Amino acid sequence: MTETTGTRSVRTGTEAAPRPAAPRRSGVRPAAAGLPLLGAVITLAAWWLVTSGLQLVHPVSLPPPQAVWQALVAGADVLLPSLGVTTTMTVVGFLLSAVAGVLIGMALAASRRVERMFAPLLVAVNAVPKIALGPLLVVSVGWGSKPILTMVFLLCFFPIVLSTATGLTTTPADLAELARSLNASWWQAFRKVRFPAALPQIFVGLKVAMPLAAIGAVIGEFYSDKAGLGYQILQYNGIGDTATAWAAIVLIALMSILLYSALSLVERLALPWVRATTSAR
């Protein structure tokens, strides 16, 4: 209660109730776009400082950013079509490995015997240095897209298999008990409970595999007649044009960032409940 005396007001009794907190604004925060841009600026500044400012690295080994930009502009008629080839090989190989990896992971999660039989073999295949298989792939599957897609598959499938099997075998106990209490069949429990609960873990494996797909595509192009960015890196490096070779490397990095961001967007749209049920950073 508040008593008024003259021009002063004296508060007595119960204090006034605090104002409710303002609702959190939704939408994209400015930092979401500004921080990646700031990181890119800092990286370019460090690159320029090492190559041009302090001249710690010879420009033949690592050209300065302005030289790479000039080479990118001058060689755009060659590099941009090669970017399309590499992007296509990366996406197609990633999709193939995603489908196969999820199916193999489901098979491992469905049967402990299958897991014990084939898990060591999968580990052994993943442990083989993939670059050593490049010349053998050309002999085995021939030229063209096949060695590139095979290399992408070999690099991508293991994290997808592992994340799928892990997600399907770590269903929360309360959800599994709920399915049993409702007398759900195996297929109903899998479709309604186990697989949706495993999707966040599966997307972790997919996001790990996406940059590996770009690496696999470039390595495959080293041993293929497809004129992708990996092929162009070998060609320009062979004639001593390291600036254009580094321009191709920068395009590969940008392509990987865009594909990873697209996959993250798909995850956010496909799994809206994850952000609502987990702590936000």
Rank of each mutant, 00 (worst) to 15 (best):
V125L: 15
V128L: 14
K130M: 09
L133H: 06
V139E: 15
P147Q: 07
P147R: 08
P147A: 07
I148R: 11
L155F: 09
C156W: 10
C156Y: 11
F157R: 02
F158D: 01
I160P: 02
I160G: 04
T164W: 01
A165P: 02
L168R: 07
L168V: 09
L168A: 05
T169H: 04
T169S: 14
T170V: 00
T171P: 07
T171L: 11
P172I: 12
P172D: 11
D174K: 04
E177M: 00
A179H: 08
A179W: 05
A179V: 04
R180M: 03
R180N: 04
N183A: 15
N183C: 11
A184P: 01
W186E: 15
Q188G: 04
A189E: 11
R194W: 11
P196H: 09
L199S: 02
Q201A: 14
V204F: 07
G205Q: 07
K207W: 02
V208K: 08
M210N: 04
L212P: 07
L212R: 14
I215L: 13
I215S: 02
G216R: 05
A217R: 06
A217T: 12
V218E: 04
I219H: 03
Y223T: 07
D225S: 12
K226M: 11
G230R: 06
G230C: 02
L234G: 15
Q235Y: 13
Q235F: 13
N237R: 14
G238W: 10
G238S: 14
D241V: 01
T244A: 11
T244Q: 12
A247K: 09
I249E: 00
